[in-house]
Design a protein around this nucleic acid. Structure first.
Lengths: 135, 135
DNA sequence: CTGTATCCTTAGGGATACTG
DNA sequence: CAGTATCCCTAAGGATACAG
């Protein structure tokens, strides 16, 4: 891959700055989604070819890993890597910003407060998940 | 504007998730850029029509404001609003993530440490700037 | 169920000439 | 200097059919 510059913000932009990647990461981190059809069913209606492409790119960039489901050979399971999980702090700040400025969010202060207090629990849950896979 | 969903991550994506907006914000926040030709001169080589479009969209979305330079009537000056400035925490987390995983970054630990220690000073400087304009 | 493969459309972007 | 206005092009995305 050829980067436009060596700026870290540009690096992030080129890694997950497209229209869909961050939404897939959201589904993995906050919505406990793990399977293809679960991502496909998200509100934003990603189309199947784009989803396949993004999953593959996220895997190539080391943010997620793909494994075979234990129960069902045909079924693939997507999980976060540490690199992917490390997006959490940034995502939380992003969510806090949106909550503050998106008029659709009701009671942003309460919402942000609950985010922060759940932060540690979320990290622990995701890290445990991670152990499941890499073990 | 019509949003794909009411998710806060999607809101952020649709507000500044294009290829250029965040780089303009970076220039304003971290590089003290204020004028059209300064943005135009950035490493990533944004083209003039795109820059004009992004500045206008960022203004419409309330992240920046445009004013006339005091010295020169023809010269326009772009400044951060509070809403724009509030992207700082997210950007710092983004930079920290990139520093950790972009192999181009030398000594990421040191880099991230210096980011964090400069954080408060940066906020104060930017806030002072803001006072200049809105006063 | 988990994807590929195709086809098609469009938004986003790049180059460059031009204007107040 | 600070942008518009054009023209053009491609990558990105959407719809849908199909395959292992």
């Amino acid at each position: 891959m050829k980067y436009r510059s060596h700026c870290p913000i540009n690096f992030a932009q080129e890694t997950f700055g497209d229209k869909w990647s961050l939404l897939v990461m959201r589904d993995l981190i906050f919505k406990d989604k793990k399977y293809y059809n679960e991502f496909l069913a998200s509100d934003e209606k990603i189309s199947t070819n784009i989803l396949a492409d993004r999953l593959s790119k996220l895997e190539m960039n080391g943010l997620i890993i793909k494994s075979t489901d234990k129960e069902n050979q045909a079924k693939k399971r997507y999980s976060l890597t540490n690199k992917g999980l490390d997006l959490l702090p940034m995502l939380l700040e992003m969510i806090a910003w949106s909550a503050k400025y998106d008029s659709q969010t009701e009671a942003p202060d309460t919402f942000i407060q609950s985010l922060k207090s759940n932060r540690q629990a979320l990290i622990e849950k995701l890290t445990a998940d991670l152990g499941d896979i890499t073990a």
